[in-house]
Design a binder for these strands. Structure first.
Length: 502
RNA sequence: GCUCGCGUGGUGUAGUUCGGCCCAUCAUUGCGGGCUCUCAUCCCGUUGACCCGGGUUCGAAUCCCGGCGCGAGCACCA
């Protein structure tokens, strides 16, 4: 291989970067990434960034992607047994493949305990029996607490008492701290807590353990055990990185490369608080985790959003540390592009008004109306609406009925809207079937092609079931269709559709 | 209070490491128009930004100094 010309090294040509930036120190085939949610609910749009960006990188570098359940809190953010499966489902749907490895922190406790024993024996950690309030003061004052002077033997003994089921130490009496130094200029890093006592039974392992590691310890040990090479996480965890790095340095481990992103809000939803949503569902404000008004992955999937569109959405967002607030219209635009080509067209008439069309003397009515399933993909075939003999009964939307002028029934005929009522109902007449001029087009259905259906949509925070008539079709449940002149919707059942977006 | 991070059009983003290719990229939104027997999709056009003040330099979005603004951590949550 020839050595590179020196001038080629002098300056990179500036080019616009497309896609995700390169990962620092990444070796193809050896990258290990992880996504580590707390299983206290299903995934939200906010989580999807973690799933997607990490998965994308794993794919870019032919690396490994771990899904890890950080379920070591039995009290404040208690794990939800159902959430484990929900998250695996959401993860798989978002990334297009199953994780290479699934780990549950609660099942990894023996490993964590082993390391705790070791670190306490090595004097890297000590048991602290100060109250949280007292330690807070010590932390501010940069002064060491009395417990810090205990010997490793004494600490091991106290640690045994913390673990002991009939021990004298109960919840709140003691924590294990990492001996980082009380003089660290960053107060967040001063002898940070690694273990605490929690009596609440764990949904997965019951009352097997009395002590549970905090995130900073559990995650630090597990990342090392799994050989994680790159951590990509929120910048709110920057001090977490620093805490963990202090521990890594003590025990001689190599800390992974770490990248951060800022906080994300969506204009329409605000933040993504799983706990808040859980409360609102319990109080009956929402019907469930897949309530179309919620920013959960299950709700978005139910509404017909495309995982590829979400992927592009997050890739476009990149890895900046800026706190951002994005409008749903950005995602919607990407989603429309993703689903439009495949979405069959259907007609939905909201608040239908029945009209009898008078064919007029000598007027020849066509036997049927033929319209494409997709105007840009004619190979997808056609829809055929047979028209009855004699008088034709059609349905049009109430909002289109307000006019008294001519309107064109799309792909069929110009009619005069007369607001003339007879014993049979509203009557109008067909003026011509040829397309002449630019008579405003409205959509419609012949009554024999219409079936009652509801369209679920959100209006000002309320979930509305808009009643109407849907064109008879046999698309399977889950099909994302485009309702002509309205927008996209997903077929949820024979008579229910869920609104996606326009 | 201490510590850390971030500031490019309405929104998001590229460019900032290594100053000139940047009178600043791309997307989205808004506005205008075209295509279309859908108010969808698509196409074209257009408005619109380097937080502020100094400094270094022939030249600064990019380097230095000082402000200001926003956010996060300092939990026995993750």
């Amino acid at each position: 291989m020839e050595s590179e010309a020196p001038e080629a090294l002098e300056k990179r040509v500036k080019e616009r970067r497309i896609g995700l930036p390169e990962l620092p120190n990444a070796v193809d085939g050896e990258v290990v990434l992880r996504f580590a949610p707390n299983p206290n609910g299903p995934l939200t749009l906010g989580h999807s960034r973690g799933v997607i960006i990490n998965s994308q990188y794993a794919e870019m570098y032919n690396g490994k992607m771990i899904l890890r359940f950080d379920d070591t809190d039995t009290k404040i953010k208690r794990p939800d047994l159902k959430a484990y499966d929900w998250i695996i489902q959401d993860f798989t749907w978002l990334s297009g493949k199953e994780p290479d490895l699934i780990l549950e922190a609660s099942a990894r406790m023996p490993e964590y305990l082993t390391h705790a024993n070791e670190f306490i024996a090595a004097n890297h950690m000590y048991v602290c029996t100060c109250t949280a309030e007292d330690f807070r003061e010590l932390r501010v004052a940069k002064s060491e607490c009395p417990c810090r002077a205990n010997t490793a033997e004494k600490n091991s003994e106290l640690w045994r008492q913390m673990n002991d089921s009939d021990g004298s130490l109960v919840e709140g009496d003691a924590v294990v701290r990492v001996r980082t130094g009380m003089d660290n200029k960053n107060p967040a890093l001063r002898d940070w807590p690694a273990w605490r006592i929690q009596r609440a039974p764990h949904p997965k392992v019951g009352e097997k353990y009395r002590v549970w590691p905090l995130l900073d310890f559990q995650s630090a040990v597990e990342d090392h055990l799994q050989g994680v090479t790159h951590i990509i996480r929120g910048k709110d965890l920057m001090d977490s990185t620093r805490k963990q790095k202090l521990l890594y340095d003590m025990v001689g481990w190599k800390y992974p490369e770490t990248l951060y992103w800022g906080r994300v809000k969506v204009h329409e939803f605000g933040g993504f608080s799983t706990s808040q949503m859980k409360k609102d569902i319990q109080s009956g404000q929402f019907s469930g985790w897949d309530d179309p008004r919620l920013p959960t992955i299950s709700a978005l999937r139910r509404r017909g959003y495309d995982a590829g569109a979400m992927t592009k959405f997050w890739i476009d967002m990149g890895l900046t540390q800026k706190d951002i607030s994005v409008p749903m219209s950005t995602l919607n635009s990407l989603n429309a592009k993703a689903v439009n080509a495949e979405a069959p067209r259907l007609t939905f008439v909201r608040e239908p008004v029945s009209i009898r069309l008078d064919l007029g003397d000598g007027f020849e009515s066509p036997a049927k109306v033929t319209l494409p399933i997709h105007p840009e993909h004619l190979d997808k075939g056609v829809r055929e609406w047979p028209l009855g003999e004699g008088v034709i009964k059609v349905k049009i939307a109430k909002e289109d009925f307000t006019s008294r002028e001519e309107r064109r029934l799309k792909d069929f005929a110009d009619i005069g809207i007369k607001h003339q009522k007879t014993i049979h109902g509203w009557e109008s007449e067909i003026i011509r079937t040829e397309r002449v001029g630019n008579t405003p087009i409205i959509h419609w259905l012949p009554s024999n092609m219409a079936k009652p259906a509801v369209l679920l949509l959100e209006e000002e925070g309320e979930l509305i079931a808009a009643e109407g008539l849907l064109e008879i079709n046999d698309y399977p449940v889950g099909t994302v269709v485009q309702l002509e002149r309205m927008g996209f919707a997903r077929i949820e059942s024979n008579e229910i559709m869920i609104w996606t977006h326009s």
